[in-house]
């Protein structure tokens, strides 16, 4: 039995923002920019125990052209900074960025000559996940928070300021 049997030639009304945001927030395609040990917890989040598919975000895309959310997972050093920026620039709007773990957030304890002191010096960040590394629960919490934020956006907003 399909919807057409129940509703027939019917219709429903909604706000465009709500329809678009509903589609966006339940179908995040992630670009995993994984550089360090945080990657293990990131993989764990994908695995069956924590099952990120429950949030519609189980599909990693390894092309930035096809991704909505940039997950920066791990330490980013100065030599890598232009690469991260280029990946971000190649993503299509709308796009969001998650700093996964304390290194991506602030450089962590790598306060030294090589490490970028937080990826927000390179790309705008929407969600920061603390932890070294964060537990999968924290990752799912961040994902749900990102969904709430997407829900508050409007298609009229110009995200790329």
């Amino acid at each position: 039995m399909g919807l057409e049997t129940a509703f027939g030639h019917s219709y429903l009304t909604t706000r465009l923002d709500e329809a678009v945001n509903w589609a966006r927030k339940y179908s995040f395609f992630q670009y995993p920019f994984v550089t360090a040990c945080c990657g293990m917890e990131f993989m764990s989040t994908f695995a069956s125990t924590y099952d990120i598919a429950r949030f519609g975000a189980e599909y990693p895309r390894f092309s930035p052209r096809q991704a909505d959310v940039l997950f920066v997972v791990g330490t980013v050093n100065e030599k890598l900074a232009p690469v991260l920026r280029r990946v971000y620039d190649q993503m299509c709007e709308p796009k969001w960025v998650v700093a996964f773990g304390v290194c991506a957030t602030s450089g962590g304890f790598y306060d030294n000559y090589a490490v970028v002191q937080g990826i927000d010096r390179i790309v705008p960040v929407d969600i920061y996940i603390p932890g070294c590394p964060p537990r999968p629960e924290a990752v799912l919490d961040a994902l749900m928070e990102l969904q709430r934020r997407v829900d508050r956006e409007s298609v009229l907003d110009r995200r790329n300021k």
Binding site: K79, A81, R85, R86, Y113, R121, I122
Partner: peptide, 18 residues
């Protein structure tokens, strides 16, 4: 070499402003 000296990379189009 100063232990707290950072050198944000400004070449290669990274667009750094910090």
């Amino acid at each position: 070499y100063p232990i707290d000296r950072h050198q944000p990379r400004r070449d290669d189009g990274a667009g750094r402003t910090d």
